[in-house]
């Protein structure tokens, strides 16, 4: 076997010859060594083991470019801090987010809320609860919304996209018509439409509403990727070798279709958090005020924005920073995984 086959499982368009071997050398070498060395062509391939090899080296190649990108580090640090905050939130929050500790200084009639004071750095909210503790614990629910909405959207899109892209024919037609109909409704309208179906809006209904919107997006992306590979040489080679359809789809086509999907998923986390906030703003968010969520806090604060802008600015600031973090990470991943930048 010659040069052509060495690039087979990784789709020839993306890789230059010898990359699989280069990755192997990289793995054997110590951390950080030999990053720029060009590999020699001529590695035999086309076994499943080599598919894994190419996957590793694809990530390695991307990582090599990522780790010198400041944008990536800013995004990664923001997300790391956010996740850390969400994990340790119950231990570092000074007060119970549901307890109306400052209710004595709060008056609906006079439109007054508790000011910042010792032990309460940001003061209270309209119900006399500690705003600082609510912000800290809000990170948990917000992370849940972002991650689960993305995972559900991804799973749905994966099923539809693989059905359409792998089989083609009438499966493709049916799936894509469904996707067309879903895409014909502007995304937020679709999310609203789903959210209003729930009698008692809660975190789960919000997650479902914002995740369904993402299903057609992922489905379309995956289908496009898989269609492009159906006619490619490495799939043809696998078929010629007598590999059955399922392994071709799941071990050859799917892994090679994933990089744009990963990028999209990172960006969707940000979109989901923002969409959830929009639902809260329209009164369709979680009504469970004992477990705060940033979007919900922002929605609650909307009536008081003229008199108490801080109530809105803090949760909004948190949402913006986190959304920015995921956007930066997604964009830098896109740059790093883009075959055009591989040189």
């Amino acid at each position: 076997m010659t040069d052509g086959t060495s690039a087979l499982p990784g789709s020839g368009r993306l890789r230059r010859p010898g990359a699989a071997r280069k990755a192997r050398i990289d793995r054997l070498a110590t951390v950080g060594g030999r990053s720029g060395a060009p590999g020699a062509p001529g590695t035999p391939a086309a076994t499943d083991e080599d598919t894994a090899d190419v996957g590793v080296s694809l990530l390695r190649d991307a990582w090599r470019r990522l780790r010198v990108t400041p944008v990536f580090w800013v995004g990664a640090v923001i997300i790391a801090l956010f996740v850390l905050l969400a994990v340790v939130a119950p231990w570092i929050a000074p007060h119970d987010p549901g307890a109306q500790l400052l209710i004595g200084q709060t008056s609906r009639a006079r439109n007054s809320i508790a000011p910042p004071q010792a032990g309460y750095p940001l003061g209270g909210d309209t119900f006399g609860r500690d705003l600082f503790s609510r912000l800290i614990l809000g990170s948990r629910q917000t992370l849940l919304v972002g991650v689960f909405a993305t995972l559900i959207g991804l799973a749905g899109g994966l099923v539809l996209g693989v059905l359409a892209g792998a089989f083609g024919g009438w499966a493709d037609t049916v799936v894509m018509r469904i996707v067309d109909v879903m895409l014909s409704i502007p995304s937020l309208l679709l999310a609203i439409s789903i959210a209003v179906l729930f009698t008692n809006p809660n975190l789960t209904s919000v997650i479902i509403a914002v995740s369904v919107v993402q299903i057609p997006v992922f489905a379309r992306l995956l289908r496009g990727q898989m269609l492009a590979q159906r006619g490619s040489d490495h799939v043809l080679a696998a078929r010629a070798l007598g590999v059955r359809r399922a392994p071709i789809v799941f071990r050859h086509m799917l892994p090679n279709s994933l990089s744009p999907v990963i990028v999209q998923a990172t960006l969707v986390v940000a979109t989901s958090i923002i969409d959830a906030a929009a639902l809260s703003f329209l009164g369709l968010g979680s009504q469970d005020t004992a477990s705060p969520e940033w979007g919900q806090m922002l929605g609650e604060a909307q009536d008081r924005i003229d008199s108490h802008p801080g109530l809105a600015f803090w949760p909004a600031g948190c949402i913006i920073v986190v959304a920015l973090g995921f956007t930066l990470l997604g964009e830098s991943l896109r740059e790093a995984l883009d075959p055009k930048n591989r040189r």
């Binding site: 940000a270 923002i274 929009a278 703003f281 922002l298 909307q302 909004a316 913006i320 959304a323």
Partner: peptide, 9 residues
Amino acid sequence: LGVAVPVFF
């Protein structure tokens, strides 16, 4: 930033 800021905010 424009993409990260919620429209209504």
